[in-house]
Amino acid sequence: MKKSESFRGLLAIPYAIFLVLFVILPLVVVIYYAFTNGDGQVSFANFIHFWQSTKTIGTLLYSVAIAVLTTIVCLILGYPVAYVLAKGSFTNSQALLMIFVLPMWINFTLRITAMKEILTVLEGNLAYHPFMNTIICMVYDFLPFMIMPLYNALTKLDDSMIEAAQDLGATRTQVFYKVIIPLSVPGIISGITMVFLPSMTNYVVLDMVYNSTYIMGSLIGSYFSSYDWHNGSVISIILLVMILVVTLISNRFTAPEEQRKARV
C-alpha cells in the first residue's frame, strides 16, 4: 500500500518541474523586474511612472473602453443566439451551435484579414473609423467565446422553471427578466471573463486594422521590444492583478451549488 502511494508521488515530479520552470519562475522574474530599476535596486519608480504618465493612463482607459464595448456588443449579440439555440425547438441545435462556434477553428489572422477586406469595401478607407473597426473585428473574433458559456448555462436551465413562472402569472417578458436572466448569470459572468480580458490585450487586431492607438497589450509589446523589461513587467503585473480581481468577483457568482449552500 505505502509503496504504491510513494510511486504515485514520484509520478507528480515532472509536473512539479514544469510548474516551477514555466509558471513560478517566469512570475518571479516578472515581479523582480517590476520592482527593480536598471541598476538592480529595489524601486517603485516604475509603478509611480505608470500612474503619473498621461500616456499610460490614457492607454489603460482606451483598453478598458475597447474591452467594455466589445463585451457589451458580444453579450447583446450572443445572448439571443444562445437562447434560441438552447431553448428553440431545433432538431439539431448542436449542429447549429457548431456553425456559430466554427470560426474559432479558423486561424485568427485569416479571419481578421477577411473582415478587414469586407470593411475596406464598405468604408473605402479603414483609417476613417479606427475605433469602430477595432470593435467590429474584436466582436467578430470573440463572439463564439461569449455564445458557448451562455449556451451551456441556458441548456442547463430547466424548462419547468419557465413553465412555473408562467403558471404563476408571468408574461413572456416577465419570465425573461425574472427567471431566465437571473438563472443564466453564471453563463453571463463566464462569457464576460472570456471576452473582456483578451480584448484588453489583443493588440494584433489593432495593428491589422491600422489602429495606431496603443492598448495595454501593445504597450507591453513596445516596452519589451525596446528592452525596457522593467516598465513592461509593471504593466504585466497591473493586468495580472486586474484579471485576479475580475476572476474573484466572477467566482462569487459561479460558485458551485454546494459552496453556495455552505455560505448560508
Binding site: S160, E163, A164, V179, P182, L183, V185
Partner: peptide, 9 residues
C-alpha cells in the same frame, strides 16, 4: 410540478 421547479435564485 413533479420536480418542484422552485426558483434557486
Amino acid at each position: 410540478f413533479q420536480k418542484y421547479a422552485l426558483f434557486p435564485h
